[in-house]
Simulated assay, not measured.
Amino acid sequence: MEFTKTTEQESHYNDLEKMSILELLQNINKEDQTVPQIVKQSIPEIEILVKAIVPKLKNGGRLFYIGAGTSGRLGVVDASECPPTFGVSEDLVIALIAGGDKAIRKAVENAEDSKEQGWEDLLKHKISSNDAVIGIAASGTTPYVIGALEKCNQQNIITGCITCNQNSPMSLVSQYPIEVIVGPEFVTGSSRMKAGTAQKLVLNMISTSLMIQLGRVKGNKMVDMQLSNHKLVNRGIQMIVDEIGVSHQLAKELLASNGSVRKAVNAYRNG
């Protein structure tokens, strides 16, 4: 099948500048509502990828996200949330973005056009066949990502991808491609919109299911979360109260002395 970028196709809407604010908001929302159902169609592919990654992480491997622009930033967001949410090391899920950290805030000219730089960035982290790499690119054509995935395949490293175009070059070099075909954007070609939303949803699914598989959630609670602000401390105290039925004061003392909900509960039960 010939490769066509549906993310670049003409918007279903025209004369956007003539719409009222209400019409703009309603039409953007109308398009956004299609995204979760399209993501749903990709669950079988997401499941296969997660199943391939779980053993790697259980055996001491790491998960890398690699992307450029909006896609790269979404990887950075997802990776950066794993340590505070699940109490894992900052080295477990690592996000690389074309142009480096400065590209998180500002576009770096031509950063994504090098087919060698992605692999060079992975080498800085001493990547090996113990690890897994997921390329993120709405277009599926980003050289920075494709080159990295090709090298990973040569080194027997698991490769997956998240893209919003069918049969893209990135999908063809990925062992576990996820294609979420959201169609034309409200503003033609603005893939930070539906495509970005779709990628964020898929990343949520991947990282959350991985962390649950690694035992980082108990029941439905983030028992290993980092207690980095008053809101999270209070949430942790309530978790302990709910789990073992102690007073609020004792739960507060247990959390303070043990540093996490899991450790506090275990200390009380083993005490």
Score class of each variant (00 low, 15 high):
183 G>R: 08
186 F>R: 04
78 D>A: 15
263 K>Y: 02
109 E>A: 13
129 S>G: 07
250 L>K: 14
105 R>E: 14
244 I>R: 07
149 L>C: 07
78 D>R: 09
74 L>S: 09
263 K>L: 08
188 T>H: 05
225 M>E: 07
179 E>Q: 01
46 I>G: 02
130 N>P: 00
257 S>V: 03
234 N>P: 00
39 V>S: 04
64 F>G: 02
219 G>D: 14
200 K>R: 12
89 S>T: 14
229 N>F: 13
182 V>Y: 01
224 D>M: 05
222 M>D: 02
118 G>L: 07
140 G>H: 01
189 G>L: 03
236 G>V: 08
217 V>E: 04
172 L>K: 15
222 M>A: 05
263 K>D: 12
268 Y>K: 14
237 I>Y: 06
259 G>L: 09
149 L>R: 01
216 R>Q: 13
25 L>W: 00
252 K>D: 12
42 S>R: 02
110 N>A: 13
45 E>F: 09
249 Q>M: 10
74 L>E: 11
196 G>V: 08
251 A>W: 03
115 K>A: 13
115 K>L: 10
104 I>A: 13
173 V>D: 03
211 M>N: 03
102 K>W: 04
116 E>D: 14
20 S>R: 05
270 N>C: 03
5 K>L: 06
246 V>F: 05
257 S>L: 11
152 C>A: 14
209 S>H: 12
176 Y>T: 05
241 V>S: 06
123 L>Y: 00
4 T>I: 13
152 C>K: 04
65 Y>F: 15
147 G>S: 06
126 K>W: 00
173 V>K: 05
18 K>N: 11
235 R>L: 11
55 P>N: 09
8 E>C: 00
111 A>R: 13
107 A>L: 12
102 K>M: 14
158 I>Q: 02
191 S>Y: 04
143 P>A: 04
258 N>M: 04
66 I>R: 01
229 N>M: 13
43 I>D: 02
105 R>S: 14
117 Q>I: 07
154 Q>G: 07
182 V>H: 03
169 P>M: 03
121 D>E: 14
187 V>K: 01
150 E>P: 00
183 G>K: 08
61 G>A: 12
144 Y>V: 02
253 E>K: 14
169 P>I: 01
259 G>E: 08
195 A>V: 03
249 Q>N: 14
235 R>V: 09
61 G>F: 07
87 G>F: 06
138 A>C: 05
241 V>R: 10
163 T>H: 00
196 G>E: 06
12 H>L: 12
79 A>Y: 07
103 A>L: 13
258 N>V: 00
204 N>I: 09
116 E>F: 11
50 V>W: 04
104 I>P: 12
257 S>M: 09
12 H>S: 08
116 E>M: 12
208 T>M: 12
243 E>M: 13
144 Y>W: 05
154 Q>R: 14
148 A>Y: 02
207 S>G: 11
79 A>Q: 08
238 Q>I: 08
83 P>D: 11
29 N>V: 02
218 K>F: 12
50 V>F: 07
174 S>L: 05
262 R>M: 07
249 Q>I: 13
